[in-house]
Write a protein that binds this DNA or RNA. Sequence first.
DNA 1: TTAATATGAATGAAAG
DNA 2: CTTTCATTCATATTAA
Lengths: 177, 177
Amino acid sequence: MDEGLSGFCIRSSSGSVRGKSGTKCGRWNPTTEQVKLLTELFRSGLRTPSTDQIQKISTQLSFYGKIESKNVFYWFQNHKARERQKNRKLSFDDHKDLICRQNAPSTQSLAEMYQVSKPDRVIETLQLFPLNSFGESEPEKLRLRASECRDNNNTMFSYTMGEQMEHPPLDLRLSFL
Amino acid sequence: MDEGLSGFCIRSSSGSVRGKSGTKCGRWNPTTEQVKLLTELFRSGLRTPSTDQIQKISTQLSFYGKIESKNVFYWFQNHKARERQKNRKLSFDDHKDLICRQNAPSTQSLAEMYQVSKPDRVIETLQLFPLNSFGESEPEKLRLRASECRDNNNTMFSYTMGEQMEHPPLDLRLSFL
DNA sequence: TTAATATGAATGAAAG
DNA sequence: CTTTCATTCATATTAA
């Protein structure tokens, strides 16, 4: 069965690394090259690319596989949010030395413990820099606030590509706003 | 025949016992007590615990075994998502509205203990009257993600072939819907 | 053993 | 920007 004019789904997982088996066509599945480049840009300080930058990045990344501008937009949004979330709330290595008490509380007493009577606020410790270095080194904990390197798009890529620049000027606007 | 080309986590279980006692590494393996308490909390109506709740739960569950905050976070995410998914697939009839979005009738005392900061979407409505139908006296926007119609209009990003259009094409705003 | 299932973890997409 | 939803992937568990 060929799906005629849809032309949206690419069944063949040509060198797809993340889509190990049976890659669905529903959502964007970035290739390793795409992820690598995006990560590189992020590490370079790019956090919130402008529309123009998104367009350029998308054009560049389309060389490695199917991609749209919104994918780039979402990628940066998610990546930034999750880096922040890790550093702020759910750090995976917060308590390595869990307090070992003698008796485990029962379910009932546990429930009672959650009863808050006063605004007992947990002080959230912002880890400005990772002090905890156990045995597992986090390769990516770096976070440089290079503010906004917005208009240095000339130095974003050094690749000499073909003239794949035929993406129309993209207007990133949210229709549900 | 899987080649197992993922080099993310080291497979630890090589025919050993359940990870309850001697899990080397890999992913979190909850104990039966942990699962029991988590399930009880879920059944009591807890769907999306806050960061503070997650911390407390994680601390308490650490009595029964190794656990981290992100495990609790993921557990509730997965449990909620899969219950919803199951309900969606089970009800092929015209029961489109997802019932389990709201909290369960928390008659248990355990649930009330957890409702510390965000009881629900009901802000100043006391629990004098039972939980009634949706969208009755609630000016909040009703989400129109009924059933599966997520792919009807995915035109979040609009391509404008002209340049510098002053007004959005249609701007069908349904924020007041 | 392998196959099927259950579930922890991750992430793209989207809503708030 | 923050949070949540939906889907997918990887692995543990169980069944055959």
